[in-house]
């Protein structure tokens, strides 16, 4: 006869391990927050300098070359974050002899991809139509919705990160003149805070 308490423990641990993508590293959250902060600093230099970042912008972007530069910065931040996230997850998975590619991570990818691609196309349409003001908050809102959609397969904290991103995004849509500041809050600050929390809890 088995020990029933051990049976229950085995069930609990397996259900959790098979559903959650546990290889996600808090460190990748911190690093992508740092990349986004650097990106926001460059954007500040392109858009505001020498004015204060807390000053409400009333004019919209008119210069096509600035827009292109901003897009390139955003793409680099995104690419660097994805590569870092992938590498750190792979390293964490290898430590416990697991592969990074399993039914859970596949479902996670699919759940993330649907809102993200929808958001990406939506934002391109906004930019094409000259609606620059709400493009940055739209990034935050769709990112938050993507995280929420995938939160079943992620650590519980991610759900709160998702809600925070959505709130910051909606604030950005209401006050487009603070777009950059809120973009920095959402992609920089929140990632660093939540990444550090998760790093302390799950990695250290």
């Amino acid at each position: 006869m088995n020990d029933p308490e051990k049976d229950i423990e085995a069930i609990r641990s397996l259900m959790e391990r098979s559903v959650k993508f546990l290889s996600l590293s808090g460190l990748s959250g911190i690093l992508s927050g740092v990349y986004a902060s650097v990106g926001a600093a460059i954007a500040y230099y392109l858009l505001y300098y020498p004015r204060s970042v807390f000053q409400y912008r009333i004019e919209s972007i008119q210069d096509q070359s600035v827009l292109t530069e901003l897009l390139i910065v955003a793409m680099i931040v995104l690419a660097a974050s994805l590569v870092t996230g992938y590498q750190l997850s792979k390293r964490k998975a290898q430590k416990v002899n697991m592969s990074i590619w399993n039914p859970t991570s596949r479902r996670l990818m699919l759940n993330l991809a649907t809102p993200l691609f929808t958001g990406g196309i939506f934002i391109l349409i906004l930019l094409y139509n000259g609606q620059f003001g709400i493009a940055a908050p739209a990034c935050l809102i769709f990112y938050g919705l993507a995280l929420l959609n995938a939160s079943d397969n992620l650590f519980d904290e991610i759900r709160y990160l998702a809600y925070s991103e959505i709130v910051v995004g909606l604030l950005g849509a209401a006050f487009p003149g603070y777009g950059l500041l809120l973009w920095f809050t959402g992609f920089g600050l929140l990632h660093i805070v939540y990444g550090a929390m998760m790093y302390k809890k799950y990695d250290a």
Binding site: D7, A10, I11, L14, M15, S18, V19, P103, T104
Partner: peptide
Amino acid sequence: LQILSVLVAN
């Protein structure tokens, strides 16, 4: 029991 746990959760 473990196999079934995984399949119930996924």
